[in-house]
Amino acid sequence: MLTFRERNWAILVGMGAIMVPITSSAACSTAAPEPQSPSSETVTPQVSFADLPGQFPQPATLTDSGSADAPVGGCVNVAGSSTRASLTVADCASPMATYRVIQRVLTPDQCVADADRPFYYRDSQAQWTACLDLNWDSTYCINLDSVVTKVACDDPAATHKLKPISVQPDTTTLDGCPHTGYPHPARHFTICTETQP
């Protein structure tokens, strides 16, 4: 089974996008990713998911191209199908803001290894890649379906909801998460989550 990061490597070329797994030759899947399971029950809660320690790798950008479309530190919405994805800037507090731009580089292989997803754009004038993390927000759940959305945690129509419950800094594992989570081993933090009914 492909991981969330592997299923969501989108390449936008002109008006189309294709999903490209980075470490597996398996076909792309639209099934919701499964968060990793923890190995202990300790949680250190944090209120804000907007300012995660170590979230932005250095250098933050390797190109000026795409600065208006994918500003580092800003938020975006990735919509559309895996073959025709689109990226739109969104207010980070908005339910439309599903991802945060953590880095902007030329090609997807230049993104920090534990970015949740890259979005590659190329046309006759420019080429750039937005390296993206899920835009966790304590007021919404993230619904990990074929298209990632932010939803109310009690939304009965959303079937793959995860609620962020804490951030564990200075770790590469899920040891501090009581339920599930998303470790970022290259940047040394983990988002602890809880699956919602």
Score class of each variant (00 low, 15 high):
residue 109 D to P: 03
residue 172 T to P: 00
residue 196 Q to E: 11
residue 53 P to V: 12
residue 161 K to R: 11
residue 29 S to A: 11
residue 108 P to C: 09
residue 135 N to H: 10
residue 119 F to L: 15
residue 102 I to H: 06
residue 124 S to L: 13
residue 172 T to K: 03
residue 126 A to W: 08
residue 155 D to R: 01
residue 118 P to H: 09
residue 109 D to S: 15
residue 57 P to M: 06
residue 150 K to T: 07
residue 137 D to F: 05
residue 3 T to S: 14
residue 157 A to M: 04
residue 109 D to M: 08
residue 101 V to G: 02
residue 10 A to M: 12
residue 99 Y to D: 13
residue 56 F to N: 11
residue 108 P to T: 10
residue 113 A to P: 06
residue 4 F to S: 07
residue 3 T to I: 05
residue 185 P to V: 03
residue 35 P to H: 07
residue 8 N to H: 14
residue 133 D to I: 05
residue 101 V to N: 10
residue 10 A to Y: 11
residue 133 D to V: 06
residue 162 L to F: 04
residue 181 G to A: 00
residue 19 M to C: 13
residue 184 H to V: 05
residue 165 I to L: 02
residue 126 A to H: 14
residue 123 D to F: 11
residue 171 T to F: 01
residue 81 S to M: 09
residue 100 R to F: 03
residue 171 T to W: 02
residue 196 Q to P: 08
residue 157 A to E: 05
residue 148 V to A: 08
residue 62 L to Q: 13
residue 12 L to P: 00
residue 19 M to T: 10
residue 148 V to Q: 06
residue 197 P to W: 00
residue 7 R to W: 06
residue 50 A to T: 13
residue 118 P to T: 09
residue 181 G to I: 03
residue 178 P to A: 05
residue 19 M to A: 09
residue 193 T to N: 05
residue 76 V to D: 08
residue 142 I to N: 08
residue 143 N to D: 15
residue 193 T to M: 06
residue 47 V to C: 04
residue 38 P to H: 03
residue 174 L to T: 02
residue 123 D to C: 11
residue 27 A to N: 12
residue 188 H to W: 03
residue 84 R to H: 13
residue 30 T to L: 13
residue 51 D to G: 10
residue 143 N to P: 06
residue 161 K to S: 01
residue 99 Y to M: 10
residue 137 D to T: 07
residue 194 E to C: 02
residue 138 S to T: 05
residue 72 V to A: 09
residue 127 Q to C: 03
residue 165 I to H: 04
residue 59 P to G: 07
residue 153 C to I: 01
residue 130 A to D: 11
residue 45 P to G: 08
residue 153 C to W: 03
residue 67 S to V: 10
residue 85 A to C: 07
residue 186 A to P: 00
residue 43 V to P: 03
residue 33 P to R: 11
residue 98 T to K: 12
residue 4 F to T: 06
residue 172 T to I: 01
residue 65 S to K: 13
residue 139 T to D: 12
residue 28 C to E: 05
residue 185 P to C: 04
residue 46 Q to L: 04
residue 124 S to V: 09
residue 92 C to Y: 08
residue 81 S to E: 10
residue 183 P to A: 06
residue 114 D to H: 09
residue 155 D to M: 01
residue 53 P to C: 05
residue 154 D to T: 01
residue 39 S to A: 12
residue 168 Q to S: 09
residue 29 S to T: 15
residue 116 D to M: 12
residue 33 P to C: 09
residue 118 P to G: 07
residue 191 I to F: 01
residue 104 R to F: 14
residue 113 A to R: 15
residue 89 V to S: 06
residue 77 N to Q: 15
residue 31 A to L: 14
residue 188 H to F: 05
residue 192 C to G: 02
residue 100 R to D: 03
residue 31 A to F: 08
residue 69 D to S: 13
residue 18 I to K: 12
residue 18 I to Y: 09
residue 115 A to Y: 12
residue 84 R to G: 12
residue 158 A to K: 04
residue 176 G to V: 00
residue 143 N to L: 04
residue 105 V to K: 06
residue 166 S to F: 00
residue 156 P to W: 00
residue 149 T to W: 03
residue 179 H to N: 07
